[in-house]
Design a protein around this nucleic acid. Structure first.
Lengths: 342, 342
DNA sequence: TGTTAGCACTCACCTTTAACGAGTGCTAAT
DNA sequence: ATTAGCACTCGTTAAAGGTGAGTGCTAACA
């Protein structure tokens, strides 16, 4: 398909373009030590590569820039895994050195560090509730008319929701309901809470007074009818650093998307195992058509429970991004495993 | 000091410039219905106003733009309070219509709504702990090595912190300590917690075993040694909409500041009662030299307990911003009062 | 004396023009 | 198959000229 020389030319162009964001000319390629051909020869290859769709020009006499197909080929066939610097490795590892006590902190910090290291935007989708189990329920009355329900999971996740308490309901009723719920539900995976309530708890509750049922309704609404996606976004403004977003309009529209959890979360919810690279128009969302999104999943045992992603321009340091995500998700998965088997 | 006509000219220029962001020329001012003078007359006044420092030019033959001194005069002496639209009023009020159950939610939503209405960035500094009192402490063991301490205040604020539990300490010890703490500390204002612990609790704790003391140390570290500033920022990317930030460098540096809580929080911690308007170089921070920050405090009874602020370009819709902040902070203060006297 | 008309002048902005140079494609020689 | 040579393209930059919104100043006016 591609001759060896053509492949070399393609690789050089992509590597250089990733670094400089400028179209690359034949003369400059020929000057490189690892290229032993004349500009003319390289021009011929470049013309072929363009015919095949791997390269394109910004205008008829410009140097070449990689097309999305070019990046795709690079990513699939010719990317050499980047040796991360020891500093970088250490920084990522340090997130997991200590015994992990609170997953949310870990993820927030991770997002921060990865966007520092890459200068891209990091998106972390928190552990899906899959394996996490209810550790404890708690009701704290605040005043006569309101109370706060607190739910703690075995990953250290704390969810709280406040709710109004009608005057006819006594706090002691609430307390009793919570006791029942705790008794029945502690240790139950969060995703089964609903089902368990249906089968195990409802009957029990129904034996009591109507006030009791109302109390239960309240708590139920406050805590269970609520799908929790925890999305951490870090380094949004890194986008502004990339020359492809010098056009402020593009930056604006991308910002709008990134600020809406609703739009981001579905993108990250992938079933693909391991890394997935979406280049330019491979992204469904239009504003991301000049972006690349690399997502990596992390697992607990066999189950994928969350996603981490880097969002940057299509001209992305793929090797570095991939290596970092790989490193991170491995560590994360290991730490999770340890956490749950302690 | 200023003749009536000069004042009119100044006001017109500022009003127009706030709307258009373009230098205003004498001819355009003369065309307005509320101005009955010829361009030449107005030019003379403009020259005077420039001599006095209220206006400046972008180049020698350009129209005039307001200087910071101009804005300052406008704000201090000639700003007519804007009649907010009923939609706007309703939107703000709706934040407080329902019985307030969780202050944090209210503030988050408020920040969101104010930045929607103004197209500026809203910063809310959460209620200082002043009057808030401890409602309940809770320890939830997560696994053998870790636990989560949860602190609930009477404002519905939930603070949680995880900590590692050394192997020699038993969870039952922790529980006992928490019981003691709850017994002694519930109802105590958060800011006095430290003092109360010193005087009332320490002695009690010391009577027990050393493990007991260690447990106490843990909890103490996890919950009390932690100053909590709750900062909500909304509409950061609105900054990008303002033409004065078309220069991407300026946007970048402002973003960097806004993303650092450490830098923003001190700015909002003002002692000034009511509204404070900081125009351009009146802001200490250099990146804000072409911004205006309007801060308003909200109170609980006599005490200021938090701040809300709008950050925009110096060319700000002052009247609207002031009216909105005023409206909001009044409602907020009233709601707080009701909350604590229920 | 305060206001206005008139006029020369300024300067950002736009368009045109020209020179430059990095780059290409093609052809012919090696 | 590779390369040297050369004409050609086109974005970029700088200079030059025209336009128009704006000014400052002066002299006339009410």
């Amino acid at each position: 398909m591609l001759t060896e020389r053509q492949a070399l030319v393609l690789k050089v162009i992509i590597d250089e373009f990733i670094e400089t964001a400028q179209p690359i000319g034949s003369r400059n390629i020929a000057k490189r030590e690892d290229v032993a051909y004349s500009p003319a020869t390289i021009r011929n290859d470049m013309a072929d590569l363009e015919d095949e769709g791997f390269l394109s020009k910004t205008h008829s006499s410009s140097g070449r820039i990689p097309s999305e197909k070019g990046y795709r080929f690079y990513v699939d066939h010719m990317m050499s895994p980047l040796q991360l610097s020891s500093d970088e490795v250490r920084l990522v590892q340090s997130q997991f050195d200590d015994r992990m006590i609170e997953m949310e902190k870990v993820m927030q910090n991770s997002a921060h560090i990865l966007s520092e290291l890459t200068q891209y935007t990091t998106l972390v989708l928190g552990p899906e509730v899959y394996e996490t189990k209810l550790k404890q329920l708690q009701i704290v009355p605040i005043n006569k008319q309101s109370a706060i329900a607190i739910l703690v999971t075995d990953t250290g996740h704390v969810e709280h929701r406040s709710f109004a308490v009608p005057s006819e309901i006594d706090h002691s009723d609430l307390e009793k309901v919570v006791n029942i719920l705790n008794e029945k539900l502690v240790g139950v995976p969060i995703i089964y809470l609903d089902r368990m309530i249906e089968t195990e708890v409802i009957d029990l509750i129904n034996r009591y007074t109507s006030n009791f049922q109302k109390s239960y309704d309240l708590i139920q609404k406050a805590l269970f009818n609520h799908q929790t996606t925890s999305l951490y976004v870090s380094g949004k403004s890194n986008i502004l650093m990339q020359p492809e977003f010098n056009d402020i309009e593009k930056a604006r529209s991308l910002f709008n998307v990134m600020e809406s959890e609703d739009q981001i979360a579905p993108i990250l919810k992938t079933n693909q195992e391991g890394l997935k690279i979406s280049i330019g128009h491979e992204n469904e969302m239009e504003v991301m058509n000049n972006c690349t999104l690399i997502t990596a999943t992390y697992t607990l045992g066999e189950n994928q429970i969350g996603t981490i992603a880097l969002l940057g321009p299509t001209r992305m340091e793929y090797a570095k991004a991939v290596s970092l995500l790989d490193l991170w998700s491995n560590h994360m998965s290991q730490s999770l495993y340890r956490w749950f088997n302690d």
